[in-house]
């Protein structure tokens, strides 16, 4: 009997340790991000770092202003949301409310395939198909630009938006819709006036999830952005927070390297805020 109790206690402890690994990991990541990110910000000066408009890390008189990266990241994410969210929501509406079950059973998994495609494959297609196409259509000397980033990101966040919105739309109680139809609204009016408003908290969670994905994406963006530290303009080559880190990390040293970690810290802060918002939305959805 006693041996059994000991085994039970040991197993309990082992599983508890497994359980807290996730907490440890989050702590380690946070601590490392802060410790490695703070020194350069201190040396460069917070305002100069965040609001400085020029990044010239390898110049004789180096400048470390990351405002172009921050704004590019925000613009690219906003652009991806503006394109991706309406298309994603309407696709989810089609799958959940209009399509025959058999059609939905083909389209939905196909769209979920998008989520599984590695980001380097998006980067490849973006670099070899999208970028030349933008160059030709808009008659530019180089197609690597913010627009290319926005298009690639909006495709990459589509599966997230579609699946979260689809779940939310399908969870709308049928009585709501039946009530609306019984009052004389058409199917389409019901969808836009009843179903989508009723599912808005879930859809919002999908949008926030998309924001997180878009702002954190690195490799696909790297391959289509051109990676010049310009202030964001639709047809200009840009550098985002993620690509600023990835581009120089392999050869950076000294203050330049520390500054890269500071950029990562800024990105991390953005991500943590997005995570908190997402958690809020999901909690609200649960308690309903």
């Amino acid at each position: 009997m006693k041996a059994k109790n000991i085994v039970e206690l040991v197993m309990n402890t082992i599983f508890f340790l497994c359980g807290i690994i996730a907490i440890l990991a989050v702590l380690i990541i946070t601590v490392y991000m802060i410790i490695s990110g703070i020194p350069a910000i201190r040396e460069i000066g917070f305002t100069e770092f965040i609001f400085g408009q020029e990044w010239a890390s390898t110049a004789a008189d180096p400048k470390f202003g990351i405002l172009p990266f921050i704004l590019s990241s925000i613009y690219a994410t906003a652009g991806a949301i503006i394109i991706g969210v309406p298309i994603g929501i309407l696709t989810a509406v089609y799958i959940s409310k209009i399509a025959k079950p058999k059609t939905a059973a083909v389209i939905y998994p196909a769209i979920q395939l998008l989520a599984g495609i590695p980001s380097v494959v998006y980067g490849l297609i973006g670099m070899l198909v999208l970028v030349p196409a933008i160059m030709n259509v808009f008659d530019l000397s180089n197609g690597t630009c913010l627009l290319a980033v926005i298009i690639v990101l909006s495709i990459m966040i589509l599966p997230n938006i579609v699946s979260v919105s689809e779940t939310a739309l399908s969870a709308v109680p049928p009585e709501y819709e039946e009530g609306s139809m019984a009052l004389g609204a058409t199917k389409i009016e019901t969808i836009f006036r009843v179903s989508i408003p009723a599912a808005k908290s879930g859809i919002a969670a999908g949008v926030v999830l998309g924001v997180g994905r878009a702002i954190g994406e690195t490799m696909a963006v790297m391959m289509v952005a051109g990676n010049v530290a310009n202030m964001p303009e639709l047809f200009n080559s840009v550098t985002l927070l993620t690509t600023a880190v990835a581009k120089e990390m392999s050869y950076a040293s000294g203050l330049q390297r520390e500054a890269l970690f500071s950029i990562a810290l800024v990105l991390f802060v953005f991500i943590m805020i997005i995570n908190l918002i997402l958690n809020m939305f999901l909690k609200r959805g649960d308690s309903k």
Binding site: M33, G212, T218, T242, A264, L267, F268, L278
Partner: peptide, 15 residues
């Protein structure tokens, strides 16, 4: 914590 890990982008894991 698990949810948070899901949301962290891979470049940060890399660093």
């Amino acid at each position: 914590a698990t949810e948070t890990l899901t949301g962290i982008p891979s470049i940060i894991y890399g660093l």
